[in-house]
Design a protein around this nucleic acid. Sequence first.
DNA 1: TTATGTGCAAAACATTTGCAGGAGT
DNA 2: ACTCCTGCAAATGTTTTGCACATAA
Lengths: 136, 136
Amino acid sequence: MDQLPNMRLTTQRQIILEELGKVTSHPTANEVYDMVRKRLPRIGLGTIYRNLELMAESGIILKLEVGGTQKRFDATVENHYHIRCTDCGRVDDIDIEVQEEINEIATKSSDYKILGHHIEFSGICENCSRKKKVVH
Amino acid sequence: MDQLPNMRLTTQRQIILEELGKVTSHPTANEVYDMVRKRLPRIGLGTIYRNLELMAESGIILKLEVGGTQKRFDATVENHYHIRCTDCGRVDDIDIEVQEEINEIATKSSDYKILGHHIEFSGICENCSRKKKVVH
DNA sequence: TTATGTGCAAAACATTTGCAGGAGT
DNA sequence: ACTCCTGCAAATGTTTTGCACATAA
C-alpha cells in the first residue's frame, strides 16, 4: 500500500533489486540468493527472504504465488499474466488483453470484496516440447 | 491422463474421497487428515498425501495450486475458478463466465503449447470484512 | 500369492525467526 | 546515539520417502 516506509537503503537491498531487475525470468528466493551471492558472498538467505517480502509489500516488486513449491519474484509490477511450464516449472510473462470488467463481473458473483485477480496459464515451453520430441 | 490405473480400492482411499466430497471448502492435506482421522485414527499423513496426489493425477479430484503456503484439494473437477481471502486464506469457488477463446488468444501470444489456465481472484471474505469493521 | 498400499518415522525442502553484533541516518 | 538491518543458525511448517508389515485382488 504505502511506498518504502522507513526502509533503509542498505547495500543488500540495492543489490537484490539490481539483480532482480537484470533478469526477465521469475527467480525463486533461492535463485535470487545465488545471483546476489556472487557480489555479496556473506549475505544470508534470511536477508533475501526478509527483503523480497518487504519489497513486495511496498509494491516495488511482485511476489508471484504461482503453482509449484516455491514463490517467485518479478521486478515488473505492472499488471500482467503468467504462463508456467508444467514440465520444468519455468515461468514466463504472457501479454494478453482480457475483458477489463472481469473484476466487476466477479464482484456480482461473490460475497467477497474483490481486490484483484491473476491468470496463470499452464503449458509446455518450447525447450521442453523439443526435448519430448527427441526422446519419443 | 488415464483413469485409475491399477489403483486398489482401499478403505483409506474410499474414506478420503468420501470426506473430501462432504465439504464445499477446499481443504489442505492436513485438514483432510483431520477429517479422515476421526474415522480412521491410525491413518498416516503420508497416506493422505500419497493418495490425494494419485487421485489428482487420475483426475478424480482437483489439486489447487493457489497462493498461500499449502496446496488445497477439491472434489469438484469441472472447470471453475477460485477466490482466496488474503486475510484468512480461505478459498471459495466463484462461478463466472470468461471469454471461451482465452486459451486460443494465449496461444497466439506465446511460444508455449497451452494446456489450460486458472483464474484466482483475491479479496476479503465476508467474515473478515465484518471483523475489520468491528476492530477499527 | 504377490504386487500394491499403509503406518511410522526420518528426511527433504521452503520459509521464518531469535539473537548478538553491525551499519545507515 | 539509536534504530533498523544483517548474518548465522536454529526452528517451523509442508511435503516426500524408505522400509517392514499388512491387505486387496
